[in-house]
Design a protein around this nucleic acid. Structure first.
Lengths: 160, 160
DNA sequence: AGTACATTTGCACTTCCATTGCGTTTTATA
DNA sequence: TATAAAACGCAATGGAAGTGCAAATGTACT
């Protein structure tokens, strides 16, 4: 894990421990499947992102892993992106956010053509994976490879 | 126009001169109408943007007006944005682009709900004002104030 | 296990664009 | 033409993205 590693020894009840280990093994297998070496750092970051219900910025990960280097986190995310594990989201704030891809997302085809919602109140960005970008027609001569639809407004949590 | 002003004296045929003056007067009137003091700088920048068929970045304006200060250009664009003369476009490149608003765009309601196209070949961003963002449904609890749809691909000029 | 090689990580920079503070100049207007 | 408000020029700051390189770690092979 590099020079800054802290090792914490914590005692858990056996059943809980089993569960945690199970989860980490699953993540490890998943990363391997995606052709990403399942280093400790990567497993932790993956777990962090899986727990989050919203898209995360690099700075969010940085805060969560204060001990780790920004560059490492940055490159981890980039690796995840390259391998089709996460997709980058441009929510219009100027800060790149990332979220786990849906199942079946491949390197070639990041089919994250769903809608992204950015709440101007809590500043959280959510993947509305159920809400796909509608079919768009373009002027002749134009061809689309990719698209991004961001809706800004108030999210359900901030709804008053 | 500030300390850096250059004055060029150029002789034109009277008919051409009249035309140029007419256009500048129109721009001047338009700016006044929008409650923006029509300084020389602002008229020039407005004219520059009106001529361009694509959205421009601050650096583009900078290159076009090498004599002027970046800050001035920046603030001019911001003023234009505040007064509903231009709208900012986030085309996913991370660099803010700007384009003239459509007629009838007001300060309160920047109805630039059209599609933006970013060509990954020539890096130009185009407002497809005829192509509106389709109606979107959202999960309950979510309300939309604004949206942005960017399509990336190949534009008509780069179409091979 | 031990060695050689490839990948990953940490650190220190650099770059690029957006943005602000402040003093000076220009413009509107009384 | 005096005066206040707005615009401008200059210098500097801030924040995020990205890079080069050396140290550390992991993998594979004998």
């Amino acid at each position: 894990m590099g020079q800054k590693t802290d090792i914490h020894i914590i005692y858990y009840k056996e059943s809980i421990l089993k569960d945690i280990v199970q989860k980490m093994i699953k993540i490890e297998e998943f990363l391997s499947e995606k052709k990403v070496r399942p280093t400790a750092m990567r497993q932790l970051i993956y777990k962090f992102m899986a727990q989050k219900q919203v898209a995360v910025a690099l700075t969010d990960i940085e805060k969560a892993f204060a001990k780790a280097e920004r560059t490492t986190l940055y490159r981890t995310i980039k690796t995840f992106e390259d391998k089709g594990i996460v997709h980058q989201i441009d929510d219009g704030t100027g800060i790149s956010k990332y979220a786990l891809c849906e199942d079946g997302c491949t390197v070639e085809d990041h089919h994250d053509l769903h809608l992204h919602f950015h709440c101007s109140n809590c500043d959280e960005t959510t993947c509305l994976t159920e809400y796909k970008i509608p079919q768009i027609s373009l002027p002749s001569g134009y061809s689309a490879h990719d698209m991004n639809l961001v809706v800004r407004g108030t999210c359900d949590k901030c709804d008053s």
